[in-house]
Design a protein around this nucleic acid. Structure first.
Lengths: 353, 353
DNA sequence: GACTCGCGCCAAAGCGTTTTGAACGACGCG
DNA sequence: CGCGTCGTTCAAAACGCTTTGGCGCGAGTC
């Protein structure tokens, strides 16, 4: 059942039916009611493509998610971010278009979405330092919002990000204040902007507490359980192992915990761990109990909601100066941190290791 | 740059340009080359909506993913499944449309997609026993493929599923053969079809090995780490705790492991655990080492690829009898299983507990 | 040399909407 | 009573593409 048929059925012109359904004022209330009833009875919905062609709007938002072909990793936070964003899209009548592309083909994917007019805007995921996709999107004139930020990009652009630097600085300082002197960092890949900022926060904290930065205490890898385990194992096998570890994701932290257990270390007593916690729905850290991990927490689902709102606003009013939104992560206390152990302190060399 | 402009620029009619780009034979090779070059030079891509309107095909596949509003859970396997499917869509020129809807509004979402003509077909996720969405989709005439199956649905429909029953039966029998007499099940919610089948497999195994079914050894809940931990803790607190646990997801298994550690039990020695393993990219179980968990493994990403292929084939040739595909899970040996411990055997009552 | 045929191209219709511009009564006002 | 106004409706154009149904022209055939 299309508009013309519905109109014919009602003995009206397509124009009137269209206006009646779209809430235009110049249609009599009686007619509008009659049209609405008929539309409901026939379960009529305007054809997306025809409507889009006529209005020039796709009523769809694109998300391009890269799947690194080599490692085949799909970032688990996408699911929750997209759930948050999708919620808002649905409420506003937007569809969500997902483009799964191999790493590297992303520029092409954005160009394609823009030129084909498939979407009205996109969310840019997982920005890197000096991410070339940002100038590309600015150039294409396709409205977008970045989930995260990209250091070294000069032009202003809209983004939603967690204050990663401050979160990790606070976490590391907290550990230092508990007496930890050897604090390790198990980070995501550091060409990713968030990881870069977290490292800076970590380093700033070390400096502010007068602790030396030790390259052997810093690991960076894709944020899988396996990599968390590897890093944890390597750290604990050091001659002077850390007494505290700062971890970039809860999935990595689970790997670190596994390594600790293999070494017979109890979290919170023998080894302190603070992890970043994206508040993933299937991996809650302390739902109605004390959190297992002390963590810097920031809901990625909420970030999705905010990014979606920002983008739809931007689509509605282009030309406005780009808005940004910096979210603060909460530092929540769990069972995985405690004062630095005294007993196990290694024979302290006079001038620090 | 649209088709008309490109045609004008070339001094050709839109018809010829369209045919040249779409590979129709009735255009001279020289012309075709000239058109292709101009299209490339101007980075021309046909407008999706216009093309769709003209052809009657959306060139898009829908995935409706429910977000249970109460628990706000997003199943983590979606990400990997969609990565697999999306890969195939991209190769075939299809877009992927994601509908995030609150649990319960799904029927409406499907009806909407069908009526608006937004997609050419859909993948049905997370089917339940006697899932009403299947008759609905059959009724709507919208091509679809189910990821999983739905017991008690009579009509034939296309699906891709893992042989959950056999996988769990094999796993439970394997545990029994290791001497375990008290084998627990930590399952997903059992109105979900896959969980229902896994339970049946588990029960069949118990029966085949002459073991009693004990309701206290069976848990079912949403597959989160927290719920895995809860179930594990409850099981291990029993007067006659199980010596082996069969778990429905690796995330739950991580929770079970945490409970075991709290009880001072070593996996593979004091307690055996077998988990189902969807081979998630960020949660690999034994990438290049011996797997941590003994597991029934089946790649959900591969399932996504297969489902996508099946659906696109179905869209291309409707009316064909529905094809189905049953995948077998591998039983892979890891470090979490071993013979039933003898020492800790409880004082055996004469006639079995 | 007329006729057929096929190659290469084109004009125009059509896809299902929205939107522009106008028509048509009815009504109020001078 | 004539004119402008308002409220309601409509016909037709437009969106950017595909596709139908020719059309012209040169080559081949008799």
């Amino acid at each position: 059942m299309n508009l013309k048929q519905l109109a014919a059925h009602l003995g009206l012109s397509p124009t009137t039916v269209s206006r009646a359904l779209n809430g235009y004022p110049e249609v009599a209330e009686a007619t509008r009611a009659r049209v609405a009833a008929a539309a409901r009875a026939h379960d009529y919905r305007p054809n997306t493509r025809a409507k889009g062609l006529a209005t020039g709007r796709a009523m769809a938002i694109g998300h391009v998610i890269p799947t690194a072909t080599r490692h085949e990793i799909v970032n688990p936070v996408f699911a929750d971010f997209i759930a948050g964003a999708g919620e808002r899209y649905a409420a506003a009548g937007y569809d969500l278009l997902l483009s799964v592309v191999p790493d590297g083909d992303e520029a092409q994917a954005y160009r394609d979405l823009a030129r084909r007019g498939t979407v009205d805007g996109v969310i840019l995921h997982a920005p890197r330092i000096a991410d070339p996709r940002i100038p590309l999107l600015l150039d294409l004139g396709l409205p977008f919002v970045v989930h995260g930020r990209s250091s070294e990009v000069r032009a202003p652009y809209p983004w939603v990000d967690v204050n990663n630097l401050r979160a990790f600085r606070r976490a590391a300082e907290f550990l230092a204040d508990l007496g930890h002197r050897r604090i390790a960092l198990v980070n995501g890949l550091e060409f990713m902007d968030f990881a870069h900022r977290r490292r800076r926060g970590y380093l700033e904290a070390l400096e502010s507490r007068g602790l030396p930065a030790d390259a052997r205490l810093m690991h960076a890898a894709e944020m899988t359980e396996t990599n968390g385990h590897r890093a944890g194992r390597a750290l604990l096998a050091l001659p002077a192992p850390p007494t505290a570890i700062l971890v970039s994701s809860i999935i990595m932290a689970i790997g670190v915990r596994r390594a600790a257990e293999e070494h017979g270390l109890a979290l919170g007593r023998d080894l302190s761990v603070i992890t970043h916690d994206d508040d993933l729905s299937y991996l809650r850290n302390g739902e109605d109990e004390v959190p297992i991990f002390t963590a810097t927490r920031s809901s990625v689902r909420e970030a999705g909601r905010i990014a979606a709102d920002l983008l739809m606003e931007r689509i509605g009013q282009p030309g406005q100066p780009p808005r940004t939104r910096l979210l603060e992560a909460a530092l929540i206390l769990g069972l995985s941190t405690g004062p630095a152990p005294r007993a196990a302190a290694p024979p302290a060399p006079p001038a620090g290791a």
